[in-house]
Design a protein around this nucleic acid. Structure first.
Length: 285
DNA sequence: ACAGGCTCCTGCAGGC
DNA sequence: TGCCTGCAGGAGCCTG
């Protein structure tokens, strides 16, 4: 399940590989589910477009592109400026954004293929179709900002303000993308363990000092996970098909019944905010 | 405005 | 062996 570190790893990998590349042809499947923008609109806009950069915003991969050069004699080309495009990819649960040779086998659940001039392809593959593909034309639409605040750089005061007065559990609040974007189930559980806070604790009951420790721990966990290429649980791989290693550092996530690496107590799993939630009953009070 | 629950979707694991 | 059931979860939607 791709969260911030996995999406960051993929975005960096794709950026390295496709920066400057021009799209020769674009193909989009007809399934409704992953498409926030219609397949035909995405195909038309992306054909001939050129990658300027690829970045992460929350759990989204945002590809910045310059549009195709204007055809001779076309009207409305103000000062010859090409339209700026954003192709926004959300991986959902099982989505993959891969850079492959165009001769590589097209696997099941491939929803988009962008053929580059040099014979490579960018492919979006998503079995469960919880992912989303969106195209924005910045001449007519606002640039994508993401729903919430970036957790890696948020300041203490802003972090505190996000949770102030919230009666929901701190776990649910961490998962709320309208507050912080990019945090998912794994890194919420892992950061709460590192500061000894029970996931069920109501957010507004946390002291300023606790919230500050949580902010620091969250940033440390996310940063370390990025350095290790993310967590490979289920079928996560980066843009090159390579697995990450942060799953080896997990202290609670996916460790139900196993002994806590700090105190030896059995790690527990409960349902919270509709999600599996892992914690140590002794270390987290 | 906010909180919580349901739903989408497929692959896989576990049970009989 | 093979079928069935339940579970995984990001986020949009609906309800209270």
């Amino acid at each position: 399940m791709p969260e911030l570190p996995e999406v960051e790893t993929i975005a960096r990998g794709v950026d390295e590989r496709v920066r400057g590349a021009r799209i020769l042809a674009a193909w989009f499947g007809s399934h409704r589910e992953p498409m926030k923008t219609s397949p035909r609109v995405q195909e038309k806009a992306l054909t001939g477009a050129q990658f300027a950069s690829v970045r992460r915003v929350g759990k989204h991969i945002v590809c910045h592109l310059t549009g195709p050069a204007h055809q001779p004699g076309s009207l409305g080309a103000e000062s010859g400026q090409s339209p700026e495009l954003q192709w926004i990819v959300h991986l959902g649960m099982t989505g993959r954004l891969l850079v492959t040779d165009s001769a590589a086998e097209v696997v099941a659940h491939t929803h988009a293929r962008l053929t580059l001039e040099d014979g490579r392809e960018i492919r979006f593959v998503d079995a469960r179709r919880f992912g989303r593909l969106e195209l924005r034309n910045l001449r007519h639409q606002q640039a994508f900002q993401g729903p919430g605040t970036e957790p890696l750089t948020i300041a203490p005061e802003a972090f505190h303000a996000l949770f102030h007065g919230r009666k929901t559990s701190i776990k649910a609040a961490l998962l709320n993308q309208n507050l912080l974007h990019g945090v998912g189930n794994i890194y919420a559980d892992e950061s709460l363990f590192r500061v000894g806070i029970r996931p069920q604790t109501r957010a507004h009951r946390l002291t300023r000092a606790q919230l500050e420790r949580l902010r620091v721990a969250l940033q440390e966990v996310l940063t370390q996970a990025i350095q290790l290429g993310g967590s490979s649980v289920s079928d996560y791989v980066d843009a090159n098909g390579v697995k990450g290693f942060f799953q080896l550092e997990h202290r609670v996530y996916g460790r139900e019944g196993q002994s806590c690496r700090v105190c030896g107590a059995a790690i527990r799993r409960v349902q919270l905010a509709g999600r599996s939630t892992h914690f140590c009953p002794a270390c987290q009070r």
